[in-house]
Design a protein around this nucleic acid. Structure first.
Length: 870
DNA sequence: ATGCTGGAAGAATTA
DNA sequence: CTTAATTCTTCCAGC
């Protein structure tokens, strides 16, 4: 529902003109009524994006393992993380320690060694073959070598990966994944996973061991591949993923397979790490198999597994949930555990021999198809990902890079990886069954930009991009979203897809000539079906409402000492669902930052989700309120509160609406249930790891709290005194389709906060009132949000249109008229009285909890509260 | 003919 | 267990 596109006329004290952006949903309020007495209206809402979080993300794993130097496997170091290099905060990898190399491999395969060669300090790419498109000559050298070693790929790309790369959030899965991705990942294939200890944290896990295991398995399995005919081709190879031919094959089966693959990495706590009693020969096929036998694999077992590849594909179907539904049937045939000759249906596999671009993929198939593939056959259609034809010159995957779920700093020494332009807070991800929905864009209209500062070398580097969770306490690949490579005339940035530990990673060249700056216009977001991912054993995450992601960028910087420094930075959260994108209004640009309170000036707001019933509210900025911080989030408060107090800089973000709706510093700055309820996510996001200053109020999160019909108030009221607040009626309440008045379900009524005991006289209390007079006040849930401390006035757009409402509006009042003031006042009167502040204190253990858990707790609390209040 | 969108219908889940 | 409300997926149609 986009708002009416007609240019709204504003008859109010202030004129607001919504400028409709091409292609964007811009709604305009026909009229804005402002009822306030502030003398000064200065909207200091600069669109600038703040990247506060760029700062060092170290915490959790990261902090613990800031620097890791890998020792050559030859010596078989007992612990992977054994060598810590205190030199830098970044993640260092000793080149000498190629996973491929030294490890005493039981595996007969020597090719692995070549891999080592492949991983020089420089950018080595496994995918070299793909070079075709843009790889400089110099770079190709490596690739050439790679080509000779198809097996290498196997080690490198766990192609078997399920698209759903991420580990479940609550389990140690992440760790398992890290383990794979980091050290053994080159060898890591789904198959290898079993060897890994499910719940061992990466840190504790001995990389070497895993590594070696991987090696072994890889070697054994990979061998067959040499001979195309004999090689057990599994469908899952990268090619499959990337090249899935069919545009909209949503076969569950396929995904199912992925799931299987993915599972290994994600060992849910629920799964016993112990070997499964059922070690059937069909190791590959059943999830159990994967999960279970972590320790018992032997070469014989491997052989058995290989044999299993030839197992009847139908087995794969077993365990495919009904959910897989319709599509599943269609694709079932495609699934194959069989060791097919190289070519899978979708994969361009047909000719492994040829290295033509397309064929190349086939080659890829072989190379990359890990033995995992062999074990796990994936329906070809499963993924539509683009073929990895383009390999950026700099694209390279070091075999022993930090796992994707490792927390790494964004800055180290002279280097700093920074997101110069943040992505928009919303980007509707596309399903496999859909066409691409384009690249993620920046809120400013362009695309996100990432830049590496402090790098003075002439050697191009590669930025890796993957989709991470928005749960900043545990930044890791998102299980339900994958990065999607966008190509086409509109894309200026070359990129290459690869898969690391079941996570699709986009590699983008970072060139010195571009000042090590990359415009990310080639990254879309693919949504995987929840059912497919949730089916994976060990996957504890749920997809429902888990729709926020972050773009995670990594760069590996070769060091003089031969090590590699890895920096990482995560973007602000991005809401990927369709629905949410239609909810909160989002101001991206405004023509002016301030204007006289007397009005008369025109202000143009650009943004999204402006609805006829959206209102623009001005708030006069005032002295910064003292903000109470919540003990549980020390670092958060440190980062959020401080900046706030220093200048309210956050207000000048494009996410006005969001900010308004929620405290810029939700976690620390607001003592509100609201904050605790939904903003945990956001707050967390602002953790050092991600760039957090953006407190994105994701609709989903927002709704969680708001939709809580019972909570009377979330306590954001004036805790600091003088802080304007917004009270919003829960949408569930607001949306009364039947009510004619619903056309403007919510009104924002700025008003002097006389009743506030604030020290800030100029503070305004802004309240969202249900437009419907009939709406029983008592039933109104008031969602306090942080507007702006009493400082320069700024405008905010608040909207809450529901589809139904909008429809009603359109039908009944095409030219949606503003609500009558009388009503507004009437309602507002109800709310004039200060609302008691309810301060919730979260359990100290929150830090240990995952966001979901926290939210759940909060919800429960709120519910209790509501009941009490009601 | 392809993407890229914005909308929606209908199924699947939750509350 | 049933119903209503949400959310998720899949489709459509218009650039």
């Amino acid at each position: 529902m986009s708002a009416p596109r007609e240019e709204p006329e504003l008859d109010f004290d202030y004129l607001f003109e919504y400028e409709y952006n091409k292609g964007e949903q811009l709604g305009g309020t026909d009229r804005e009524h402002f009822n306030y007495a502030s003398s000064n209206l200065s909207a200091s809402l600069s669109p600038g994006v703040t990247n506060s979080s760029l700062s060092n993300p170290c915490h959790g794993l990261q902090s613990s393992n800031p620097v890791i130097s890998i020792i050559p496997s030859s010596s078989h170091p007992p612990g992977y993380g054994g060598n810590l290099d205190s030199e830098a905060t970044g993640y260092y990898l000793s080149p000498s320690i190629r996973p491929v190399g030294p490890p005493a491999l039981e595996s007969p395969r020597i090719e692995i060694t070549s891999c080592l060669a492949m991983h020089p300090n420089h950018n080595q790419f496994f995918n070299e073959p793909d070079i075709e498109e843009a790889i400089p000559q110099a770079k190709r050298i490596h690739s050439t070598a790679t080509l000779n070693l198809p097996n290498v790929d196997t080690y490198r790309d766990p192609s078997c990966l399920s698209p759903a790369s991420s580990l479940s959030s609550r389990s140690c899965n992440s760790e398992a994944s890290s383990f794979e991705s980091n050290y053994s990942y080159p060898f890591t294939s789904p198959q290898t996973s079993p060897w890994q200890s499910p719940c061992v944290s990466p840190k504790t896990t001995d990389p070497e061991e895993g590594y070696q295991r991987s090696m072994v398995t890889c070697t054994l399995l990979s061998s067959p591949r040499h001979s195309p005919s004999t090689s057990p081709r599994t469908s899952i190879s990268e090619e499959n993923w990337l090249n899935a031919p069919s545009s909209r094959p949503s076969s569950p089966c396929i995904k199912r397979k992925y799931s299987l693959n993915g599972r290994q990495t994600s060992y849910s706590p629920h799964h016993s790490p112990t070997p499964s009693p059922h070690n059937s020969p069909r190791v590959s096929v059943t999830d159990e198999t994967w999960l279970g036998n972590t320790h018992q694999y032997t070469s014989s077992a491997i052989v058995a597994a290989i044999n299993a590849l030839t197992t009847d594909p139908t087995d794969m179907n077993d365990g495919i949930p009904i959910k897989s539904r319709k599509t599943a049937a269609d694709h079932t045939p495609n699934m194959s555990l069989k060791t097919e000759p190289v070519c899978d249906d979708h994969s361009t596999m047909s000719s492994t021999n040829d290295l033509s671009p397309d064929d190349y993929s086939g080659f890829h198939h072989i190379r990359k198809g890990n033995f995992c593939d062999q074990y796990l056959s994936v329906p070809q259609q499963s993924y539509q990902w683009a073929k990895p034809k383009n390999i950026s010159p700099t694209s390279y995957l070091s075999p022993s890079l930090p796992a994707l779920d490792w927390h790494l700093p964004s800055q180290s020494g002279p280097y700093e990886l920074r997101i110069e332009v943040q992505p928009k807070s919303h980007h509707r991800a596309h399903y496999e069954t859909e066409g691409s929905r384009g690249a993620v864009k920046a809120s400013t209209g362009g695309h996100p930009i990432v830049q590496l500062h402090g790098y003075l070398e002439n050697e191009p580097l590669t930025i890796q991009l993957f989709i991470g969770t928005a749960d900043d306490r545990l930044l890791r690949p998102h299980a339900f979203y994958q990065v999607h490579r966008i190509t086409g005339k509109t894309v200026s940035t070359t990129s290459h897809e690869t898969i690391i530990s079941n996570t699709k990673v986009l590699e983008i060249p970072l060139l010195p000539e571009n000042n090590m700056r990359a415009i990310i216009d080639c990254a879309g977001i693919l949504k995987l079906r929840n059912s497919d991912i949730e089916l994976r054993k060990g996957e504890t995450d749920i997809g429902r409402k888990n729709t926020r992601v972050r773009l995670v960028f990594r760069v590996h910087i070769p060091q003089a000492n031969g090590r590699t420094l890895t920096l990482q930075v995560a973007s602000n959260p991005i809401e990927c669902s369709q629905r949410s994108a239609q909810e909160l209004p989002l101001v991206e640009k405004q023509s002016t930052d301030n204007f006289p309170v007397i009005g008369g000036k025109k202000m143009i707001l650009n943004g999204h989700n402006f609805h006829p019933d959206s209102k623009v509210i001005f708030v006069e900025k005032a002295p910064v309120p003292i903000i109470k911080t919540e003990p549980t989030d020390d670092y958060e408060s440190a980062q959020t509160c401080v900046p706030m107090s220093q200048g309210l800089t956050q207000l000048s973000k494009p996410y006005y609406s969001q900010q308004i709706m929620m405290p810029p510093d939700p976690g620390s700055c607001l003592v509100s249930g609201f904050t605790s309820c939904q903003q945990r996510n956001t707050v967390m996001s602002s953790s050092p790891i991600s760039s957090p200053k953006l407190h994105d109020l994701s609709a989903s999160a927002y709704n969680k709290c708001i939709s809580n019909p019972g909570h009377t108030q979330l306590g954001l009221q004036q805790t600091t005194g003088g802080v304007p607040t917004i009270q919003e009626v829960p949408r569930s309440i607001v949306g009364h389709p039947s009510s004619p008045d619903q056309s403007s379900p919510i009104m924002l009524q700025p008003q002097v906060s006389l009743h506030q005991s604030s020290s800030c006289p100029l503070g305004f209390q802004q309240t969202v009132y249900p437009n419907s007079p009939s709406s029983p006040v008592p039933s109104i849930t008031q969602e306090p949000s942080y507007l702006q401390p009493c400082s320069p006035t700024h405008s905010a757009v608040i909207g809450q249109p529901q589809h139904q409402h909008q429809k009603v509006q359109r039908n009944e009042s095409p030219n949606s008229q503003p609500l009558s003031l009388p009503e507004l006042h009437e309602d507002s009167n109800h709310n004039l009285a200060p609302i008691p502040v309810t301060i919730k204190r979260e359990p100290e253990e929150l830090d240990q909890l995952y966001l979901d858990d926290v939210n759940e707790i909060i919800r429960n609390d709120l519910s209790s509260n509501n009941n009490v209040h009601s």
